[in-house]
């Protein structure tokens, strides 16, 4: 594995809770998300069809239910791809339908109010 490099993405205050910014880092389009004060970064490229993953809505969804009812949960912890609507966990990049499918995630470091992405 090649060594990771640290890229400055934005100032933390530029990404309020529940929001995201898109950055161009190391030639890649990267979405930086603030989920309840925690920062996550995903490649803006959906593993399904290469769509604009990070430009879709940050959302919750119905969680698996055994009583055949709608139980809404995980609000603000998921991204729905802008193209075909596949749902992914912001934290892990895992697809909700098939956890073996993962969107590319990057490590994030916040130092002195600067948000860095490890690529």
């Amino acid at each position: 594995m090649t060594a990771q490099e640290r890229f400055f993405a934005c100032r933390a205050e530029e990404v309020p809770e529940g929001e995201r910014v898109l950055c161009r880092l190391d030639g890649k389009s990267v979405g930086v998300f603030n989920v309840g004060g925690e920062f996550f970064a995903l490649h803006n490229r959906c593993p399904h069809k290469g769509g604009a993953l990070c430009e879709g809505p940050v959302t919750g969804t119905t969680v698996p239910s055994d009583d055949f009812d709608y139980v809404y949960g995980r609000a603000g912890r998921l991204i729905r791809c802008a193209w075909h609507g596949w749902e992914f966990e912001l934290e892990t990049g895992r697809s909700l339908v098939d956890p073996s499918i993962r969107a590319k995630t990057f490590g994030v470091v916040v130092e002195d109010g600067n948000v860095y992405v490890l690529i």
Partner: peptide, 15 residues
């Protein structure tokens, strides 16, 4: 369609 719209049928556990 299920892969995009699974939230409509969260009781399903398979494709």
């Amino acid at each position: 369609d299920y892969k995009a719209l699974r939230k409509e049928t969260p009781w399903l556990k398979m494709l």
